[in-house]
């Protein structure tokens, strides 16, 4: 059942930026989202920018290089491509496009200028990384940008974590101090226009725990303040509640201990004191956890952003797990 808010925000989306506190499952969720879109017949690019080879691990394929590689072909006709964006080739490509450098590129490399520009020159690295994503998002099969049909229907970006994502997206501001004029400035402005457009959505992955939720709330405020569109909060690794409301209420009843003892005995389980009290202690801890999770859910809901849910897969995401998560996203209205 897609919520109207989700449907509205997804209508024009072409670039999905996925962020979240580190370790919440950003890469996994980005991969599942890309897979869900591809399974609906789209041609999708999944890109990562931190050189961690997360895509290659998630899809169990050899490490990705500078070339886009087809990861999945769906019976629907959809395709999923993967790319690990590296700043160095992106800079070389950039220099080639704008300056027709030819062999001079090698000279730059030799004196360490490429290393310098891609690692330490503030902001340049981010412009290069996101510039590549910009290029892929707008790429067409015609002779020039804007001519012909778009090569990718959707692009999903496994972005830096919440703490860094606004700085990362805010390239225009970052290069403002460096380049006041010239092509890199012009490029930063086009990139910013696209990122602030309705076609770009930033999704935030979280767990139902205090720190990730806090970071998500902070990120929503910061993204909004910088006029980036927030798509959905995606709650990952949700566990099902294993105790019904009736049982939760019964935990307050002093008679429960006796009943449990009698039931265990009836089932021929040795109902020792430690086992009976242990079962009750486990239930109480579980309820405490559930209450905290409810609190976290309420906090997320109060943000007025569509919320999507992904279950914790007991066996991990290996071997088909990604498809299960992709399916769950589709069922919740991700188009």
């Amino acid at each position: 059942m897609p919520s109207p808010a989700l449907a509205r925000s997804l209508t024009d989306a072409r670039l999905h930026v996925v962020t979240g506190k580190g370790g919440t499952g950003k890469t996994t969720v980005a991969a599942a989202l890309a897979l869900a879109l591809a399974a609906q017949g789209r041609r999708v690019l999944l890109a990562e920018v931190e050189g961690r080879q997360g895509i290659s691990q998630a899809f169990d394929v050899p490490p990705l290089g500078d070339d886009e590689v087809r990861l999945v072909t769906d019976p629907s006709g959809g395709e999923l491509w993967g790319l690990s964006v590296d700043a160095k080739p992106a800079l070389m490509e950039y220099l080639q496009t704008f300056y027709k450098l030819g062999r001079a590129g090698a000279a730059l490399e030799k004196v360490g200028a490429i290393d310098f520009a891609t690692t330490i020159a503030p902001g340049v690295r981010d412009v290069l990384l996101i510039g590549k994503v910009y290029e892929a998002t707008g790429r067409t099969d015609g002779a020039r940008r804007g001519q012909g049909r778009l090569v990718y229907d959707s692009v999903v970006l496994d972005a830096p974590p919440t703490g860094r994502v606004v700085r990362f997206l805010n390239v225009n501001h970052e290069v403002a101090d460096i380049a006041r004029v010239g092509p890199i400035r012009g490029q930063a402005e086009s990139i910013t226009r696209m990122l602030r457009d309705r076609s770009t959505l930033v999704h935030i992955v979280t767990l139902l725990e205090e720190m990730p939720v806090q970071e998500s709330v902070d990120a929503i405020a910061e993204l909004t303040a910088h006029r980036f569109g927030v798509g959905a909060v995606i709650v990952n690794l949700e566990r099902e509640a294993l105790l019904s409301a009736a049982t939760r209420a019964a935990l307050d009843d002093p008679a429960l201990e006796e009943r449990v003892r009698a039931d265990l005995t009836a089932a021929r389980v040795r109902a020792s004191g430690p086992v009976v009290r242990g079962l009750l202690a486990e239930a109480e801890d579980h309820v405490e956890r559930l209450l905290l999770e409810d609190e976290m859910r309420a906090e997320i809901r109060s943000q007025d952003v569509p919320v999507l849910h992904l279950p914790a897969l007991p066996g991990g995401v290996d071997g088909g797990g990604l498809s299960v998560l992709a399916q769950a996203l589709t069922e919740q209205g991700v188009r």
Binding site: L242, L243, S244, A246, T247, A250, L256, R259, V260, D263, L264, L279, L280, E282, A283, H286
Partner: peptide, 9 residues
């Protein structure tokens, strides 16, 4: 039923 749930948990 409460015991069943405790055991499954």
């Amino acid at each position: 039923s409460a015991t069943v749930e405790l055991l499954r948990l």
